[in-house]
């Protein structure tokens, strides 16, 4: 199972990793992405959600998503 599926998250953006005991805070954008990844949504679906929810165009959303995913990879959460 991917580690991201095990993350405990709350609505304020507090994220706890039960495997490593680390905690993180994320903003509302990060929270949306983590939740969507936990639900197994595709990158295209997540980009659409970002565009709908925040004032951002598709290109900017894609760049931010890729950037955030890389960050999660560097933390071994993906």
């Amino acid at each position: 199972m991917q580690r991201i599926a095990q993350l405990a998250i709350n609505e304020e953006g507090f994220v706890f990793d039960p495997v490593q005991g680390e905690s993180f805070t994320v903003n509302q954008t990060g929270l949306l992405i983590i939740k969507a990844l936990k639900e197994g949504k595709s990158q295209e679906e997540i980009i659409r959600e970002l565009v709908n929810r925040f004032e951002v165009d598709e290109d900017k959303a894609r760049i931010d998503l890729v950037d955030f995913i890389e960050k999660l990879r560097s933390l071994n959460l993906l």
Binding site: Q6, F16, P18, V19, Q20, G21, S23
Partner: peptide, 16 residues
């Protein structure tokens, strides 16, 4: 941990 290495704050984890 304290200077003597004693835990003062900790968190439960589930490392399988």
């Amino acid at each position: 941990i304290t200077e003597l290495g004693k835990i003062w704050t900790g968190v439960t984890v589930k490392n399988e």
